[in-house]
Amino acid sequence: MTKRLTDQIVRRASAGNRPQVFFWDDQVKGFALRVTTRGAKAFVLDYRVNGRQRRITIGSYPDWSVAAAREKAKAMKREVDLGADPMGERHDERTAPTVKDLWSRYSSEHLALKSPRSQADETAMWRDLILPQLSKEHVRDISTDHVERLHRRISVERGTPVRANRVIEVFRKALNLAIRWQWRSDNPATGIRKNPEHKRERYLSLDEIARLNKALADHPEQTSTDAIRLLMLTGARRGEVLNATWDMFDLDAGVWTMPSAHTKQRRLHRVPLADAAVELLRRIKRSNESVYVFPGKSSDNPLTDIKRTWQSVCNKAGIQNARIHDLRHSFASILVSHGASLPLIGAMLGHTQVQTTQRYAHLYDEPLKGAAELVSQAINGASYGPNIGD
């Protein structure tokens, strides 16, 4: 039936025994009232786009009046005339991927390729920091303002400015992948001003190393102290040492070959071992039946935590403000003091980028100054006139 819809018609409209009935408006083509057998009433609009018949619900009665629904229908028809598809856009809105969907795909396709430690760390970032704020937001709607608010909340409200920087780095990577997946065309996390970070550089002196060796020898826990010794002797990362398996070592050749899945850079890394490291490993192997060099409580799993032992030996040795990772920096500083070049240090530590090793360049100041003094003395000694600098 077709006639001009009025409030009186809408109030009286009934579907009777039929599942639903449409009361079509004769003023706006395609505009109608739909009534179900249970008495539910809603305004709809039928239209055609690209040869396809569409029906979109405008709203329910009495939430929408006849006049308001008719004006909305007119506006939609104007959009259709301009090439829009209101029903398609509404469907896209419902099905558009959210940040929660982004996390799901990111974790399965990207994060799964990272080390267990990185997986655990980034999972915590998403679970505790990103998703509580943004999970329901559509990826295409994420703006720079969203990202800045997230960064600010972690920095200020939680008081963890460095963590805030790491979270934004992870989120930026996820949004870069969203661009690749054609979920959006730009990355709003690019260019976010990060909190200042001061690189912490702590090198153990030879005296501290001597005291540490004494404390390690006196400590009752041998597995974790041996792990710390291997860290000192190789400059390897904690995860590389704790997850090391015997099949990575050729003790006759004195070489530790880390497979790509074992290293931070995801590249095979071949580490020549000093005689002291080989001797340490031979001693460990004599009483070790696990596939892991440093087994945990179960021989089927690696040791996961040496922090308590580290803190204990540092306290006994009187070493303040030192982290386990500082053993890696100390390894590099000893190499510098004995004349090793930056490329050699980078190769020993498994660096893939020159700028990573460049952080140790300032350690050359004293050796270089000494070399400059030697040149100065030679020049002054060979001079016939006044010495340079006089």
Rank of each mutant, 00 (worst) to 15 (best):
Leu5Met: 12
Thr6Ala: 09
Phe22Lys: 00
Asp25Ile: 07
Phe31Gln: 15
Thr37Arg: 01
Ala42His: 02
Val44Ala: 12
Leu45Tyr: 11
Arg48Thr: 15
Val49Gly: 02
Gln53His: 11
Pro62Val: 04
Ser65Cys: 05
Val66Tyr: 00
Ala69Asn: 04
Glu71Gly: 00
Glu71His: 05
Glu71Gln: 12
Ala73Asn: 04
Val80Glu: 07
Asp85Cys: 02
Arg90Gln: 14
Arg94Ser: 01
Lys100Asp: 06
Asp101Met: 07
Trp103Lys: 08
Glu109Leu: 10
Glu109Ile: 05
Arg117Phe: 03
Arg117Asp: 11
Ala120Phe: 01
Thr123Cys: 03
Ala124Ile: 04
Arg127Ile: 00
Ser135Arg: 13
Glu137Lys: 14
Glu137Gly: 00
Ile142Gly: 03
His146Ile: 00
Arg153Tyr: 05
Ile154Pro: 05
Val156Glu: 15
Val156Leu: 13
Glu169Trp: 12
Val170Ile: 09
Phe171Tyr: 08
Lys173Gly: 04
Ala174Lys: 00
Ala189Tyr: 03
Lys199Ile: 13
Glu208Pro: 08
Ile209Met: 15
Leu212Trp: 12
Lys214Ser: 08
Ser224Phe: 02
Asp226Glu: 09
Ile228Lys: 06
Arg229Gly: 03
Leu231His: 13
Met232Val: 13
Leu233Thr: 04
Thr234Val: 12
Arg238Ser: 09
Arg238Phe: 02
Thr245Ala: 12
Trp246Gln: 12
Met248Leu: 11
Pro259Cys: 02
Thr263Gln: 04
Leu273Met: 09
Leu281Thr: 05
Arg283Pro: 03
Ser287Met: 11
Val293Met: 06
Asn301Pro: 01
Asn301Val: 01
Thr309Ile: 05
Lys316Val: 10
Leu327Met: 13
His329Asp: 11
Phe331Ser: 05
Ile334Phe: 14
Leu335Cys: 07
Ser337Leu: 11
Leu342Met: 10
Pro343His: 06
Leu344Arg: 11
Gly346Leu: 09
Thr357Met: 08
Gln358Gly: 08
Arg359Asn: 03
Ala361Tyr: 14
His362Gly: 07
Asp365Val: 02
Lys369Ser: 11
Val375Ser: 01
Val375Gln: 03
Asn380Ile: 07
Asn380Lys: 13
Tyr384Leu: 14
Tyr384Gly: 12
Ile388Ala: 13
